[in-house]
């Protein structure tokens, strides 16, 4: 007759979304339009920003700045970076393997593309740096000095 006094909600444990990469699923973070991040974020996985970020972002997967997303700061995506048509990226350094910028996007910064950790443009021939020779040279000099020292003695013997 008597109805349970427990509220229906308390009968079922609330399922905790387990998508933090621990379960083998690719990790993915979404910053919604009302979200804001100030600081640094490193993520092993993908990142989607439709909110505001002031800081440095680094993702081993893709980064997508979409909707009205705004990012101020350096961005590194080991794979692809996408900047949507209403989105904005004002960066110092942008390091990505692949890059898509849609028409209408705001985008500025220094772009380095290629596989992860690209160095400066590979086309630029490396000028032979005149190395500031350090101790390495000294033995040679010393040897030369020894040779020079020997020379007169040989000559002396010949005489």
């Amino acid at each position: 007759m008597t109805l349970s006094t427990r509220r229906p909600g308390s009968r079922l444990p609330t399922p905790v979304p387990a998508e933090n990469g621990a379960n083998g699923q690719p990790n993915s973070i979404v910053l919604g339009p009302n979200d804001r991040l100030v600081g640094q974020l490193y993520i092993e996985g993908d990142l989607r920003v439709t909110g505001t970020v002031d800081g440095t972002l680094e993702a081993t997967g893709d980064i997508e700045i979409a909707g009205g997303g705004k990012v101020n700061g350096d961005v590194t995506a080991y794979n692809r970076l996408t900047v949507g048509s209403d989105a904005s990226l004002i960066a110092g350094d942008v390091r990505v393997a692949r890059l898509t910028v849609q028409d209408g996007a705001t985008f500025s910064g220094k772009v380095s593309m290629g596989k992860h950790v690209p160095s400066s443009t590979p086309k630029a021939p490396q000028p032979e740096p005149q190395p500031q020779v350090e101790p390495v040279v000294e033995p040679v000099v010393a040897e030369a000095a020894v040779v020079a020292a020997r020379e007169p003695t040989k000559k002396g013997k010949r005489r």
């Binding site: 692809r80 692949r98 890059l99 898509t100 910028v101 849609q102 028409d103 209408g104 996007a105 705001t106 985008f107 500025s108 910064g109 220094k110 772009v111 380095s112 593309m113 290629g114 690209p118 443009t121």
Partner: peptide, 18 residues
């Protein structure tokens, strides 16, 4: 003033917009 980069393109350099 406006910029569109299609997937597959390669860019190395500074971008200034506005």
């Amino acid at each position: 003033r406006r910029l569109q980069i299609d997937d597959g393109a390669t860019l190395n350099g500074h971008v200034r917009m506005g």
